[in-house]
């Protein structure tokens, strides 16, 4: 299947969903209409789940996201959670001092049944 790539903009993150199981979401996610932005990601995961790689790692490196995106990101996690036949994990990155972003990661970790690794970085 084809990889999913999105370059990223002032309001949307870089997306690199590779069929080898390496998934990246990086930058900022503050679009007014997040459903529209995240729809292709959910659809891609839907196809991916038909024959996933033996390991899948979603690396989330977000600097900002709005509450509208927070629901869609939850949908991405839920979709991942439902993928069977792959060892799935999430690497949640947050900038040092950014307790809001760490907290957001912990919220997802509590809701989603996937292993989360919290990674502090100097700058995203």
């Amino acid at each position: 299947m084809e990889d999913l790539k999105h370059e990223g903009s002032a309001k949307t993150p870089v997306v690199e969903f590779n069929s080898n199981g390496e998934l990246l979401l990086k930058g900022r996610s503050i679009p007014e209409n997040s459903i529209e932005f995240y729809k292709p990601l959910i659809e891609w995961l839907e196809s991916y789940s038909e024959s996933p790689n033996s390991t899948t790692v979603l690396s989330v490196q977000l600097e900002y996201f709005n509450t509208s995106s927070s629901k869609c990101i939850l949908d991405v996690f839920k979709k991942l959670e439902s993928v069977s036949g792959s060892e799935i994990s999430v690497k949640w990155h947050y900038e040092e001092d950014d307790e809001d972003m760490l907290e957001a990661g912990e919220d997802y970790e509590a809701i989603i049944d996937l292993p989360f690794e919290m990674i502090e970085v100097e700058e995203i």
Binding site: S34, I35, T67, S68, K71, A110, I111
Partner: peptide, 18 residues
Amino acid sequence: YKEVLGNGKLSEKGGGGL
């Protein structure tokens, strides 16, 4: 916040009550 995030649905306009 966690409760509304986990339970709520997004409205068509993109707001989720959050």
